[in-house]
């Protein structure tokens, strides 16, 4: 159950991004997780409910997209692999490198920003 610590790490980064880009608020946060991320989507969402008020992001929508586990095979290129059998399904190669699905990725952040015409002249 380390989802709360991952959410804290995520929201600290999102807050930094909001400040750097002069955002007034964060509308939504898109993340990607895969089978080897070590993250359970339901637990991630409940951890978000607990932690987001600390960052004043109660209104912010967290969107969790699940992605498959993929790897790079030296012979066959990008392939989909099973998490319990990490070999190339086409040629049987075992020396493959995982390229996606083993982490929690922050994909994008939607910010609410002030319009030119909202600014005082």
């Amino acid at each position: 159950m380390h989802e709360q610590s991952l959410i804290r790490a995520l929201l600290r980064q999102v807050e930094q991004i909001r400040i750097e880009n002069g955002g007034l608020a964060v509308v939504d946060i898109q993340v990607e997780i895969g089978p080897l991320a070590g993250v359970e989507p339901l637990l991630l969402e409940s951890a978000y409910k607990v932690v987001s008020p600390e960052f004043r992001m109660r209104e912010t929508h967290l969107v969790v997209n699940e992605v498959p586990l993929t790897a790079e095979c030296p012979a066959c290129g990008t392939i989909a692999v099973e998490q319990t059998r990490i070999v190339c399904p086409q040629c049987g190669q075992t020396e493959v490198t995982i390229t996606a699905g083993d982490e929690m990725r922050l994909v994008s952040v939607t910010l609410q920003t002030a319009d030119e015409r909202d600014r005082p002249a």
């Binding site: 790490a9 980064q13 991004i17 993340v31 929690m104 990725r105 922050l106 994909v107 952040v109 910010l111």
Partner: peptide, 17 residues
């Protein structure tokens, strides 16, 4: 008010790593 999408594409634990 307008909205702006910021693309990030980074592992959340990248900084810790």
């Amino acid at each position: 008010m307008t909205q702006q999408i910021i693309s990030v594409g980074r592992d959340v634990l990248a900084k810790a790593r």
